[in-house]
């Protein structure tokens, strides 16, 4: 790599996950894991609905959205029928397993073992009446927005909102 490219290299990626639809969660996890595979530091801040992805009781029950999602290519009324989300999610998970993409819980373990820092948003936890006992063991801590920006300090850090 040339010197200019080396100087401009991403050193750290700070991902903010605010949604719990499975496609958003996986996009976030794959970006974090992919960063670590390149020797880039990665941290994830789980806020708002993103907290579902680190709640022990909920993380294996996340769904893809079949309503309000034009990329599903099914009529909105059909997408709203009972069981449609579960069915679409099941099909998607099957395809992901074929590509060796782990389930959410295992993926979180891989991220933690790979050195990705996992943070929960304090304000969102208060809003949803959640305590750390509701969250995964691998959580690195609970942060305010200010704490999160402190963690982002340093050259060539990038922030991404998902």
């Amino acid at each position: 790599m040339g010197k200019a490219a080396e100087n401009g290299r991403v050193r750290k990626i700070m991902l903010i996950l605010s949604k719990a639809t499975i496609d958003n969660v996986y996009a976030c996890f794959i970006l974090a894991n992919g960063a670590r595979m390149e020797g880039i530091e990665a941290e994830i801040f789980f806020t708002f609905f993103g907290l579902e992805a680190i709640q022990k009781e909920k993380l294996e029950h996340l769904h893809v959205a079949t309503v309000g999602n034009p990329a599903m290519h099914i009529p909105t009324m059909v997408g709203g029928l009972p069981g449609m989300e579960a069915l679409a999610t099941k099909m998607m998970k099957k395809e992901m397993e074929k590509l060796d993409i782990p389930p959410v819980g295992e993926f979180l373990e891989i991220l933690s073992a790979s050195g990705v820092k996992l943070w929960a948003c304090k304000l969102a936890m208060d809003m949803f009446h959640l305590g750390t006992e509701d969250l995964i063991e691998d959580l690195d801590g609970v942060l305010t927005v200010g704490d999160f920006y402190d963690k982002a300090a340093g050259e060539n850090t990038h922030l991404m909102f998902i």
């Binding site: 894991n33 595979m37 390149e38 060796d100 891989i110 073992a113 790979s114």
Partner: peptide, 25 residues
């Protein structure tokens, strides 16, 4: 990374320690 972790040869944490900054590559 997942398959390495499941290999029984090395854990993911150890893999990153043995080959820092991009272990698979």
């Amino acid at each position: 990374i997942r398959s390495i972790g499941k290999s029984g040869v090395v854990s993911i944490k150890e893999f990153y320690q043995l080959f820092p900054d991009g272990p698979l590559k």
